[in-house]
């Protein structure tokens, strides 16, 4: 207990927390991001409706405008869509999918990228050359193109029913695999610096195995920038997923993400039912912007040269 209190005290007293508190933009971003995440995670508990429960849907309630409009209905705060689903609830459930895909994709590319970067930087020579050329080649293609390619291959290769079941994992894989080079390059760079530091040489003189040195000495010292890339990568992954879903290549229709909602709403944008597309869009912007601003702050706060 005392240990927890003291480490909490240390955290609240740290330079990182101090720079956080003294940046109003960052505090606001953190609050917005927290609202987005909580809203998404707790959606089944706090959402006013269950948009997937067909029994509660009523086509009479379709195309209700937001509650404050003249024909608005208080039961649908942000209005309802063509099938009578509550837009707010759909956004909360959609954000769940977007965040799930984003987190998992970033985690995936982080594990792959950090592993490859660490290996390339520490081993050097031909291993380094081959791995980094692969990363260079992949970096010449836009991320979304790679994700589309992976998604297309999966669709062509898998039978439709199998594909629907694993569609979420395909999207995660597609987005994750497109982002590993950023992690790999950064980690390789820091590893090149760390591996020649004297504490690593000291471990080599003792005869510690290379794998152990990589994991216990080098890895903890190259993770700082990884945190920054992961944060910025999260917003990229969310956008990638939204783009894929908007293009109809992403998550299955049965689990609509924010991108899917925007695509559906798009059909009604010019017939006057603007709220069906605009509110999911605003939610996406809020989520991505707040995460991005947090990432920017983290990058500056962890960079000793800017302090």
């Amino acid at each position: 207990m005392a240990a927890i209190t003291s480490s909490l005290g240390r955290m609240l007293d740290s330079d990182l927390f101090w720079s956080f508190r003294h940046s109003p933009v960052t505090v606001i971003s953190a609050v917005v991001a927290l609202i987005c995440i909580l809203g998404a995670v707790l959606a089944p508990l706090i959402a006013p409706h269950d948009p997937f429960d067909v029994a509660t849907l009523n086509l009479i309630d379709a195309f209700k405008p937001p509650a404050w409009a003249a024909e608005g209905d208080a039961t649908y705060p942000l209005g309802s869509d063509d099938q009578g689903r509550d837009v707010l609830s759909a956004i909360m459930y959609g954000a769940r999918v977007s965040l799930l895909v984003g987190f998992c994709a970033v985690l995936f590319s982080m594990v792959v990228g950090v592993g490859i970067g660490l290996l390339a930087g520490y081993a050097g020579g031909a291993v380094d050359g081959v791995l980094m050329r692969i990363a260079d080649i992949q970096l010449t293609f836009p991320n979304i193109l790679i994700a589309l390619l992976v998604d297309g291959i999966a669709r062509a290769a898998l039978p439709a029913d199998v594909h629907d079941r694993v569609a979420l994992f395909v999207v995660i894989f597609a987005i994750g695999i497109s982002a590993w080079p950023q992690f790999a390059r950064t980690v390789r760079g820091s590893t090149l610096v760390e591996r020649n530091k004297e504490y690593v040489l000291a471990a080599r003189v003792i005869g510690i195995s290379q794998l152990r040195i990589m994991l216990t000495h080098v890895l903890p010292n190259v993770l700082g920038p990884v945190l920054v890339i992961a944060t910025l990568g999260l917003s990229n992954a969310i956008i990638s997923e939204a783009t894929l879903s908007y293009l109809g290549a992403g998550v299955p229709q049965t689990q609509p993400s924010l991108g899917t909602l925007i695509r559906i709403g798009n059909d009604f944008l010019f017939s006057g039912e603007w709220w069906i597309a605009i509110f999911p869009g605003l939610a996406l912007i809020a989520m991505v912007l707040s995460v991005n601003l947090l990432g920017d702050w983290l990058r500056d706060a962890l960079n000793p040269r800017l302090r």
Binding site: K197, E198, Y199, L201, A202, V205, I206, G207, H217, P220, N221
Partner: peptide
């Protein structure tokens, strides 16, 4: 000699830069 732990144990090194020779974590 370095392949044998008992021999390796008997040689050690002290480095120049006290700020780089200890793992900060």
């Amino acid at each position: 000699a370095r392949a044998i732990a008992e021999q390796r144990r008997r040689m050690q090194m002290i480095f120049q830069d006290p700020y780089a020779s200890l793992n900060p974590r």
